[in-house]
Write a protein that binds this DNA or RNA. Sequence first.
RNA 1: GGCGACGUGGCCGAGCGGUUAGGCACGGGUCUGCAAAACCCUUUACGGGAGUUCGAAUCUCCCCGUCGCCUCCA
Length: 489
Amino acid sequence: MALHLYNTLSRQKEPFVPLNPPYVGLYVCGPTVYGEPHLGHARAAVTFDVLFRYLRFLGYRVRYVRNITDVGHLEGDADEGEDKILKKARLEKLEPIEVAQRYTALYHQAMDALNVLRPSIEPTATGHIPQQIAMIERILERGYAYVVNGSVYLDVERYRQDFPYGILSGRQVEELLAGSRELEGQAEKRHPYDFALWKRAEPSHLMQWDSPWGRGYPGWHIECSAMSIHYLGVPFDIHGGGLDLVFPHHEAEITQAHACFGPEAQNQARFWVHNNLVTIQGQKMSKSLGNFITLQEVFSGKHPKLSRPHAPMALRFLFLQAHYRSTVDFSEEALMAAHRAYLRLMTAYERLLEVRPGSYSTWAVAPWREKVFAALDDDLNTAAALALFFEQVDFILRLRRQEAFLTPDDLALFQQTWREVLQDILGLLPVLQVERSKWNQTLNLLLALRRQARLEKNFALADLIRDRLQEMGVRLLDFPDETLWEWAE
RNA sequence: GGCGACGUGGCCGAGCGGUUAGGCACGGGUCUGCAAAACCCUUUACGGGAGUUCGAAUCUCCCCGUCGCCUCCA
C-alpha cells in the first residue's frame, strides 16, 4: 500500500503521487502573529509535521513552506475590520514589526518544545509584497478583478463565467448570498462575495506600501497564493491548513490562482489537506468565545482549567492518539491520560534497546511492520499505528525476560521500526535521558551513592538523595536491578 | 435557512460486512526497606427504529442529539 491522503477537493482518499518526483511541495498556512500560540496552532503544526516527516521518510525531497502572516489579516466582518497586527500594536503601543516578532518568537519556542520541525522556508507576508502586487496586476490584466478607490477586489461574478467557484468548500454563490447577512461598508464591492486583493491605506495606517493603485496593503488571501506559488510553482503537491480555513481562505486561494494563471493552475494544489479543530468541552476554541488556551498556559499550568504544568510531549501524544481529521476535545484529564500512555510506550521503547538477540525468533516482525506502515499510509492513521505499538509492549517485556526471542536481524528490524515510526515520523522524544553529559555523570554519581547507601541500609541517606532530586525535578524509577530517572513535569 | 461532520464500554479513541483495536481510569495482585514507578489479571460497547444480508458498529431509509462552516480563527 502506498500513502493515501484525504483530499478535501474530491472528498475522498486518493493515492499520493508527487507531480515531479522525487520532489514534493508542501505549503501550510501558519499563524497570524498577533497573539500567543494556542492549542489550535499546535494541532495544525503537529499534523503537518508528521506529514512532512513521513514524506521525507518515504524518500521524497520535500520543500515545506509555512508562512507567517504579519500583515493583511483583518478583524471582523467583510474587509472593513482592523488589521489584527495593527490592532495589537495600537493596544500595546508597539511597532507592528515588534508585535510580529514577539509572537513569532513565542510560536517558534512552543513549536520547538513540541518537537515540531522548522519548515524549509518560513516566508512572511510583508517580505513578499512585490510578489503579491505582481499577482494582483496579472489578475487585473486578465479581467478577473477591478479597482475602486485604490482598492482591488476579485470579481467573483466574472470569475464564475470561466471557472467553477466554490469547488473546495462545496458552496454555491447563491447559497452564500442567501446566507450572508447585511454587511456594512461594502459599497465598494460589486457583489458581497467579492473579496479584497489590495486595500487602500489611510495616511494614518501603520503598515502601507506603494502599489500601482496607490498606497495600501495586501488582502489576507493573496499572501498565501503568492508565496506558495513563488516557492513551489503552480500547481504544487499539497496545501494544508486548519479545517476552518477551507472557506473563505482556501477557496479564495484557488480562485486567485485560476484568475492569475488560468486553468493551468489546476486548483493551485493537487491535494488539499485539512486538520480538524481542538474543542474545549465540546465547543470550538475561539477568541470570541473566550475559551482558548495558549501553549504557554498548558506548559506552565497557569490556566483556570489546569491544575499543574504539562509536558509538551503529552500534548503531542494527545493529538497523535486521534486521527487528524477528527476533533480533539481538550481537557486536563485527557492530557494526563495521554501523558501516561506516552510514558508507557516510550519506556518500553527504551527497554527494547537493551534487549539482546536470540538464535531464533518466536514472532514475525515483518508482517507487523507492514501493518504499522499500512496504518500510516491510510491517511496518516496515527492512532491505529500507535495501537500496534502498544500491542507489542508486552512482547518487549517478555523479550527482556528471555521468555521470547528474536534473531539479530529480526531484533534490528523491530528496533528500527520503533525508532523510525515513534521518533522519526511521529516525532516523539525519548523519556529517559541517556546522553552523556556533565549533568548525567553527576547524576549517575548520585545514583551510585544512593545504591551504596541502600545496600548498607542507610535509608535516611538514600531517601534524602531521592527527595532532593525530586525537588530538582528528577524522578527516580527503582527497578529490581537498576535505577533509572526521568524529568518530572 | 444552506453545506458538512459526527454520535462506540467510566473517560479518550481506532474501526470502511464476519477476528479481544488500543490507551487512561477503577478494582484485584506481584515486586520493593518505604514510596513512586514498573509488571500481571480483570470489565465486551457501538444514540433510537426499520430494512438489506447467512452475518452490520460497519450498507440503506427515517427519527433523536451534538458539533463545525456560511464573519476573523489552526
